[in-house]
Design a protein around this nucleic acid. Structure first.
Lengths: 328, 328
DNA sequence: TTGTAGGCGTTATCAC
DNA sequence: GTGATAACGCCTACAA
């Protein structure tokens, strides 16, 4: 095997193009006008050598690493939803010229401090924060621009992008009424994860909307596997019940399938999407679904961070994304 | 707001500790003996200032970025399995002092070339390669050490960590026979994704094991939703059929639930795990499952890459991880 | 055991 | 419109 060639530097490019090293730099950064002719020569040399600017040197000098830190929640388990966000974030970041560095929640505040102080990250995207999250403090302290996906309780100094959970509540109620339901059974999250801001915003929306219509709202707090059974128990003849949950849709669907309740016309299931239900079974193709806009939220989060990063004096702001019906 | 303090440099630490800058560096890298006393003074100063070495400078000088590139497959959709790998990889990498940078498959060969030439990554972990994958070439060409999770067809110049799919085949056949099954129905992957090495290794294992016993192996190629129905059709009275699939377990389980087949004693389902079945429904707690060892594979992959990075002259090697029964 | 000094490859401020 | 040149913060021979 031939001895591996040292990777070329801007110096090599300059020599080949017959210009000074700094000119090469200017061609790359575009931070000063260059004549068409020399630019062409330089670019040719760059292509010929397969030159890529050294990241370490660029970061050291310019204090911009081109890297965004993404703090992902601890999962351990099978979490497809999370993967949708991560994939979309990584793709969108590349579109803006940034790379994504993973910061596990496990590292906590120390992890944040590390990536911030060492200068690896220019900015941060935080996911799945609790209402009062210990990881926010070191981020604010760091002074780095950041965006949270999911709205924390106290409005932080960073931007926020999230689904409009209040509107989600409205939509669910509205649809249930339209479909002629007398009752709305909320399973999963509502009963338990009260600690999360999104859940309470969702309930606020539900309550506000339910006030104006004839709809009996029930918060179901039992095991997901028994939801269909309990739903049957509370139902009266000629009544129709809508089921909805922010989480646990998969489990409830499974339970409904197992009890044959899927084809039961007395019920209606509105599932928050994310999992491709029709892919699991054709039986589920007819389930009305709300798109939680995870991809759009991811893209907006990246865009927002880029704005904070690149626009001088840009301030933080909140962006709520409206959910929408899938194949309504 | 007070003017933000410039982040401290090793120079600042040196001044505070009353030593030279290089001494600080030596304390950090440990690349030369330091007296107990000065080390203590330096460390105290480091703590007091909250000093973290600048990543750009360190990378520029030492050519080691402390970053591992993780090439993740294109998903778009809900993919929980992937998340398990990513989470475990990120955690394990931190344990070894490395960070994980995401490289999307979408970027393809160009993406590899970019992270390699710019020097952002010291090494790479590649996931879900096809048999002959276009992304392997630029990696090899780059000369960077790399590890693939999942064995590509041609043995590459990098290390490989993967599940022992041949043994998986053996285990499935063995179990089916033990459970008194006359027939083994393989659904999902076997019929379709022949293009993948893991599937053919799995089938090799199945065939080798089935030769030695009385077991009728059927490759099912139809829609996953109809697997239970087809399984019923080919079954004779007093016969028992084992069902298995590398992918599509969730769909088949759903279909079985919907047709009431889950409690049917004439069948047995052996699911490859990854999804917590009992979490979906108590009905599934009894399904025998094989652990695909995703966390272990992830950890081994990181360990292997670290070995290649840190041990002079370390060569690539193949590691196959044995699957094992869950709560057998 | 510790200090001095050169340079890693860029960016950006001077001059011309 | 272009070329020299001084940092950026750290690592590591080379001296002492």
């Amino acid at each position: 095997m031939a001895a591996r060639k040292k990777t070329p530097t801007s110096q090599d490019v300059a020599r080949l193009a017959g210009v000074s090293q700094s000119t090469v730099s200017y061609v790359l950064t575009g931070s000063r006008p260059i004549s068409e002719e020399t630019r062409a020569r330089v670019e040719e040399a760059i292509a010929k050598l397969g030159y890529h600017p050294n990241s370490g040197a660029r970061t050291l000098r310019s204090r911009r690493s081109g890297v965004i830190g993404l703090m992902v929640p601890e999962t351990g388990a099978d979490d497809g939803v999370l993967m949708v966000f991560i994939g979309a974030i990584a793709r969108e970041a590349r579109l803006h010229g940034y790379d994504i560095l993973l910061v596990t929640a496990q590292e906590g505040a120390a992890g944040i401090r590390r990536v911030v102080r060492t200068g690896v990250c220019e900015g941060l995207i935080l996911m799945e924060l609790d209402r009062y999250d210990e990881r926010v403090a070191p981020v604010i302290e760091s002074g780095l621009p950041f965006v949270t996906i999911g709205k924390p309780e106290e409005f932080p100094q960073g931007s926020v992008v999230d689904l409009d959970f209040e509107m989600l509540g409205h939509m669910v109620v509205e649809r249930a009424v339209e479909e002629g339901c007398d009752r709305l059974l909320l399973f999963g999250a509502p009963g338990r994860r009260r600690s999360r801001n999104d859940v309470s915003r969702f309930l606020t929306g539900i309550e506000a909307a339910a006030e104006e219509v004839e709809l009996d709202v029930v918060l179901d707090v039992g095991a997901l596997a028994d939801v269909p059974e309990r739903a049957l128990r509370i139902i009266l003849p000629n009544q129709r019940t809508a089921l909805f949950g922010i989480t646990g849709v998969r489990q409830v669907l499974f339970a409904m399938a197992a009890t044959g309740a899927l084809v039961d016309e007395t019920r209606l299931l509105i599932g928050l999407s994310g999992e491709d239900l029709a892919d699991i079974s054709p039986l589920l193709a007819a389930v009305p679904q709300i798109d939680p806009r995870r991809v759009e939220i991811s893209e907006l989060a990246v865009g927002e961070l880029v704005r904070l990063l690149q626009i001088e004096g840009a301030g933080p702001r909140i962006t709520l994304v409206e959910p929408c019906w899938l194949e309504g």
